[in-house]
């Protein structure tokens, strides 16, 4: 959607029906700075010095990609599940490449669930982390639009 996160809307206006399964979005470049990694290595926001990205960096990279790719989580969206698979460490200072896509859309118990897949690679294309978020999308079947 946009190269600059600050230019992206804070909330997605994309409806459940508009989401296209399988269409890759990105990759988005994300610098894993010492500040980002250090403020997620210990208590949130308290700076520490680390050489490798702590695991808490990756949900942040997922959220940043989600905002850049889809305009974030829509108002009223609820994060239901998250999965992370770690393949290789990511050094602080790396420019990561984050690609996302809609992995699945399904209605379960009359609620619309959207699975968003993420793939994080280092600057050489080596996969560091993969994962997904399952979000209850607020504008799908059975939901009140714009909630």
């Amino acid at each position: 959607m946009t190269d600059a996160i600050d230019d992206a809307p804070a909330l997605s206006a994309i409806t459940y029906d508009e989401l296209v399964v399988g269409k890759r979005i990105g990759p988005f470049e994300e610098r894993v700075t010492a500040d980002l990694a250090g403020r997620l290595a210990g208590p949130i926001g308290e700076p520490r010095t680390v050489a490798a990205a702590p695991p808490a960096v990756f949900p942040v990279l997922f959220l940043r990609a989600l905002r850049r790719g889809l305009g974030g989580i829509p108002a009223g969206g609820i994060l239901a599940k998250q999965e992370l698979e770690f393949h290789a460490p990511l050094a602080v200072g790396t420019t990561a490449q984050v690609t996302m896509w809609i992995g699945a859309k399904e209605v379960r118990r009359e609620r619309p669930f959207v699975t968003v897949e993420f793939d994080v690679r280092d600057a050489h294309g080596v996969q560091a982390v993969s994962g997904r978020k399952v979000i209850v999308w607020p504008t799908g079947p059975g939901q009140e639009a714009g909630r």
Partner: peptide
């Protein structure tokens, strides 16, 4: 460790 080792998997339910 600072980073979880390769092969680690974390599945979360909120």
């Amino acid at each position: 460790v600072e980073a979880l080792p390769p092969g680690s998997r974390v599945a979360v339910t909120y």
